[in-house]
Simulated assay, not measured.
Amino acid sequence: MLTAVENIYLLVIVTLISVLQNAFFAQKVERECKNENNHTSSFERVSCANRNCMDAYPTFLAVMWCAGVCLSQAPAAFAGIIYLLVRQKYFIGYLGHTSQSTPGYMFGKRIIGFLFLMCILGIFNFLLCRYYGSDYKEYTETITNAASALLLLP
């Protein structure tokens, strides 16, 4: 039981942080909704930003967890934290002017792509190990650990 938890605790932490972030977003929408004039452009922007973040949320969770379980927990959790920071930047940028949110959106897509690639590598390695007896997990973990640092580049 302990080894199973050791393999996912970073993913659990990132997931819980994302839940807190969702609560923050919901609070911002609620606060704007309670304003006297709730049909302002500010309310529309915060509502749209929240909707956009919620639309991408299931995809983020799925690829982060699959990448962490199938390949390596640490780079998947690191990418998850970076994604949450980017999502925060996107949300806050959307409150100012929608063009300020574009860098966060593009960066988020790149992180989702990285996590998806980790999933594919993990599944491919499992199939190689299962059917051909070749296990490249150590090599792919080394590559993804190094590549996860490249996510910090703009």
Rank of each mutant, 00 (worst) to 15 (best):
G113N: 10
A62L: 05
C66S: 14
V86C: 08
Y105C: 02
P75M: 13
L71P: 02
F78C: 11
G108V: 03
K89M: 13
P58R: 03
V86Q: 09
E44S: 15
N52Y: 03
T59I: 08
A76M: 03
I111F: 05
Q73R: 10
C66Y: 08
D55G: 14
P103E: 09
L85V: 11
N50M: 10
R87G: 06
P58G: 10
F91H: 12
G113M: 09
L95N: 02
F60L: 07
R110V: 06
Y83N: 02
F114E: 05
Y83P: 01
Y105L: 07
L84C: 11
W65A: 08
C48W: 00
F60K: 08
Y57G: 04
K109W: 10
R110E: 01
V46K: 06
M64L: 13
G108K: 00
N52I: 01
A79K: 05
W65Q: 05
Q100G: 01
I92V: 15
L61S: 02
L61C: 05
Q88L: 15
A49D: 11
S101N: 04
F114L: 09
I111W: 01
A62D: 00
A76L: 01
Y105K: 07
C53A: 15
Y90Q: 05
A77S: 07
L84R: 15
S101G: 12
R110M: 11
T59C: 11
L61I: 11
M54F: 12
E44H: 13
R110S: 14
P75C: 11
G108R: 07
C70P: 00
C48T: 12
R45A: 14
V69M: 10
V46G: 09
G104T: 02
K89V: 11
H97I: 06
S99F: 06
I111C: 05
G108L: 04
G108H: 01
A74N: 06
L71V: 08
Y105W: 08
R45L: 04
F114N: 06
S101M: 01
K89C: 13
G80T: 00
H97A: 13
Y90H: 12
Y83V: 08
G96Q: 12
V63M: 03
H97P: 01
Y105V: 01
F114H: 07
G96C: 07
S101D: 07
Y105T: 00
N52D: 12
S72G: 10
I81P: 07
M64P: 00
G104W: 04
M64H: 02
E44F: 14
L95A: 08
S101V: 03
Y83W: 15
R45W: 02
V46R: 07
C53Q: 11
F60S: 08
G80W: 01
G104N: 00
N52H: 03
R87H: 04
G80S: 05
G80Y: 00
V86Y: 04
L115D: 04
